[in-house]
Design a protein around this nucleic acid. Structure first.
Lengths: 192, 192
DNA sequence: TCGATTGTCTAGCAGTGCTAGGATCCGGTC
DNA sequence: GACCGGATCCTAGCACTGCTAGACAATCGA
């Protein structure tokens, strides 16, 4: 292993450190607290180092978002595969989705609320994002109903989950009825 | 009419000017462009004047949000009252809601995306917000279905609309299928 | 006409994202 | 082992943000 390889390894490690630290800081104190100065201090480098890895703060958010997309996809698949029957599977999926949003608010924000400079619903959409949508599609396609395009159904279902997730977390919906709302939504949208 | 009354009138007029200007600027160039300096320049006063009307930028956003809530409620009611039959009414309502979000993105952001310092789903929630929810409830309660709490149903329906609105506008959903998604959602959620 | 109060502005603070330019360290070569 | 060149990093600074203290001027009541 050459010197150059070692340097590249170290560089990659530092990049991971930046993303992990940004995520940690965001989960602890919100994205507003993730300033380039604070972030630089936490990784024990100066600010300009950040810009040798990312074009700017936006790209750092995007990196956290991609990481989150992979985890979200995994969480959804794990929940769906643990249950038999289309209806129960969809319920488990929905619960896993909302659970992820609640447990990782900063990551969820990076994915769907903030501007991470990522392309969505296009050809050049990053793979993790496509895959997260695919993870939803796998289970939701089963309950789209006859004559309904699975992709379209998944979009609608996803949007509904997203609405519940964001409005609940922003205090726009009373949190205590979350489970009842989820069951109502699944009961109506999913065609068993 | 005393001098004091005239002054209060002028003061109220200036406050309206601030809110209207902030809204206009936000719709034109996005909320990021609404800085206290720019806003002050547009109303032809200095920055500190803003702080004699509002505690800070957050409260200005909140004022725009309240204005928007009243308009949203009116738009929803107008659309619903123009149509006969529960199902058609709900479709019209949904279309009006999404239309409002699309036509007034900055106002919609102020309402549901940004922090305007407003209380939601609580006793001290401002009247316009409660009324906007009531406007939805009036039509949606009809199609909640037997044994389903109208308020809970309205929350779910609203969340779904909100998800569609935000994801579409953020480029997370392809805009061309918006109408088909709306029909699918209404068809599944509403019990005729 | 004067004094007090109200209203407004200038100037400044601490913080933001981002960058130019200089210092420093390290690897390869003689 | 000494040196040079290039990669790497940091200091310092820019223009901007929301917000505020304190000086100044206009206005009102006596």
């Amino acid at each position: 292993m050459s010197v150059q390889e070692r340097k590249e390894r170290e560089r990659a490690a530092r990049e991971r450190l930046i993303v992990a630290t940004a995520r940690e800081l965001a989960e602890q104190q919100g994205w507003d607290a993730v300033t380039t100065r604070r972030l630089a201090e936490r990784i024990e480098y100066s600010q300009p180092v950040l810009y040798s890895h990312f074009r700017g703060k936006r790209e750092i958010i995007g990196a956290v978002a991609l990481q989150g997309a992979a985890e979200l996809a995994a969480a959804v698949r794990a929940a769906a595969s643990a249950v038999d029957g289309p209806r129960a599977r969809v319920t488990a999926l929905a619960r896993a989705y909302l659970d992820f949003a609640e447990r990782n608010p900063a990551v969820y924000d990076a994915l769907f609320q903030l501007d991470g400079g990522l392309a969505y619903a296009q050809e050049d959409t990053p793979e993790p994002l496509k895959d997260a949508f695919a993870a939803l599609l796998e289970s939701l396609g089963e309950v789209a109903g006859d004559g309904v395009h699975p992709g379209l159904f998944t979009e609608v279902f996803w949007a509904s989950l997203h609405g519940l997730a964001t409005l609940t977390r922003a205090g726009r919906l009373p949190p205590e009825d979350a489970e009842r709302r989820l069951e109502l939504l699944v009961g109506r949208l999913a065609v068993v």
